[in-house]
C-alpha cells in the first residue's frame, strides 16, 4: 500500500527578497528519507541546510518556496497553513540547535511539552502533563515529574537538549528534523544525545534528517548523506560510499581539510583556499569553481558555464561535477 517514501523532496528551492537583492538560499535540492533511516545533510555555514529544513516544515515567512516536498505522499509546499499546522509537531517534528533560546523562557518544560500534545490530541491539561512527564522519562531525564515543573534555564545544556527532543517526540511523529542538535554541546554530552536519538529511532522507526557541519556526527548516525555547497547539492551518497569514495572535489577537499583523531602523526591538512560563496552574487556556473583544485589544475569552460547538475556516478551515488570522470 504505502509505496511512498516518508519524505520525498524534489527540486526544492527557497528565495528571499532582501534590500540588497534576491537571495537564492536553496536552488533545487532532491532527497528522500525512509522510515527508520537517517539522512545527514552536511555543509558549511550558509550553505542552506537550515533554510531547507524550515521549508519542509513550512516555517518560512516571507520566502518564496518552490518545488515539492511530500510527507508520506502529502504535498507540503503550497499547502494551506492550517493543513500544515496539523502535520507540524504531529507527523513531522523539529529539534533546534540551541535549546536555551528555542524553548520558551517563561513556561515550564512540562507545560511546553503538554501544550504541543494538547494542540494535536486535545484532552485535559492534566493528562497532557502526565504525558509530558512520560516523554521526559523516555529521553533519560532523571526525576521527570519534578523536572517537568522547572523552567528551561534551570536545566543543564545536555538536559535542555533532551527536553527539546522530548518535545519533538511527544506526539510520536514519523519524521524528526534535527538542525545541529549537538553543536552547542560538549563531546561527552553530544555522545549521550546522539546515542539517545539512535535508540529512539530504533524503537520507533523514525525517519531522521540530521543537519550538521560535523562530518564525524554524520559518520556516526547517517545512512545517507547530502553534501550542500552554496545552496545546492554537491554530492549525494550512502554514508559509507561518501567517506570511502567521495567524488565531488568539494567533498574531497572537505575530507582532506579535516583534522582527524584517527590520523597518522604528521598527516598534512590540505585546506580549501578561499571562502564560501556569496549568495547575493554567486559565482557563475559551478559555485565551487573559484576554490576548486580540479578547476585550478585544468580550467574548463563547463565549470563556469551552466550550473552542473547532479549526475549518477554509481549506484545511489550522485555528484554535481562536470569533471566526474577526472575525479573518479
Amino acid at each position: 500500500m504505502t509505496s511512498h517514501p516518508l519524505l520525498d523532496v524534489h527540486d526544492l528551492a527557497v528565495e528571499f527578497t532582501t534590500e540588497e537583492g534576491t537571495v537564492r538560499a536553496v536552488k533545487g535540492v532532491d532527497f528522500t528519507v525512509e522510515r527508520g533511516r537517517t539522512l545527514g545533510i552536511v555543509g558549511e555555514s550558509g550553505s542552506g541546510k537550515s533554510v531547507t529544513s524550515l521549508a519542509v516544515m513550512g516555517l518560512h515567512r516571507g520566502a518564496t518556496v518552490t518545488g515539492s516536498a511530500k510527507l508520506d505522499g502529502t504535498e507540503l509546499v503550497g499547502a494551506p497553513d492550517d493543513d500544515l499546522r496539523k502535520l507540524r509537531g504531529r507527523r513531522m517534528a523539529m529539534v533546534f540547535q540551541d535549546a536555551l533560546t528555542a524553548l520558551h523562557p517563561y513556561f515550564t518544560v512540562g507545560d511546553q511539552i503538554a501544550e504541543a500534545y494538547r494542540a494535536h490530541f486535545g484532552g485535559t491539561r492534566r493528562a497532557a502533563l502526565a504525558r509530558a512527564v512520560d516523554v521526559l522519562g523516555d529521553v533519560g531525564i532523571p526525576e521527570p515529574a519534578r523536572r517537568a515543573d522547572e523552567h528551561p534555564h534551570q536545566f543543564s545544556g545536555g538536559m535542555r537538549q533532551r527536553a527539546m527532543i522530548a518535545l519533538a517526540l511527544s506526539c510520536e511523529p514519523d519524521l524528526v528534523i534535527a538542525d545541529e542538535p549537538t553543536t552547542a554541546l560538549d563531546v561527552t554530552v553530544q555522545a549521550q544525545v546522539l546515542e539517545l536519538l539512535m535508540r529512539l529511532q530504533q524503537e520507533r522507526g523514525l525517519g531522521i534528517v540530521m543537519i550538521t557541519h560535523d562530518l564525524g556526527v554524520i559518520a556516526r548516525v547517517a545512512d545517507d548523506v547530502l553534501v550542500m555547497y552554496g545552496g545546492s547539492a554537491a554530492e549525494q551518497a550512502p554514508a559509507d560510499t561518501l567517506f570511502t569514495t567521495p567524488r565531488h572535489p568539494y567533498t574531497r577537499g572537505l575530507l582532506d581539510s579535516l583534522p582527524r583523531l584517527d590520523a597518522e602523526d604528521g598527516a598534512e591538512l590540505r585546506s580549501i583556499p578561499g571562502s564560501p560563496p556569496s549568495l547575493l552574487a554567486p559565482p557563475a556556473g559551478c559555485a565551487f569553481h573559484p576554490r576548486c583544485a580540479v578547476y585550478a589544475a585544468k580550467p574548463d569552460a563547463r565549470c563556469t558555464g551552466e550550473r552542473p547538475l547532479l549526475r549518477t556516478v554509481a549506484d545511489g551515488h550522485r555528484s554535481a561535477c562536470v569533471h566526474d570522470e577526472v575525479t573518479a
Binding site: M159, D214, R220, L261
Partner: peptide
C-alpha cells in the same frame, strides 16, 4: 566520545558514554 569521520570505524568502535554533565 569524539565521532570519527569514518562510518565503518564508528560502527565497531568501543565507546564510553559518560553519564551526566
Amino acid at each position: 566520545a569524539v565521532p570519527l569521520p569514518d562510518p565503518a570505524a564508528e560502527r565497531t568502535r568501543e565507546r564510553i558514554v559518560l553519564l551526566g554533565d
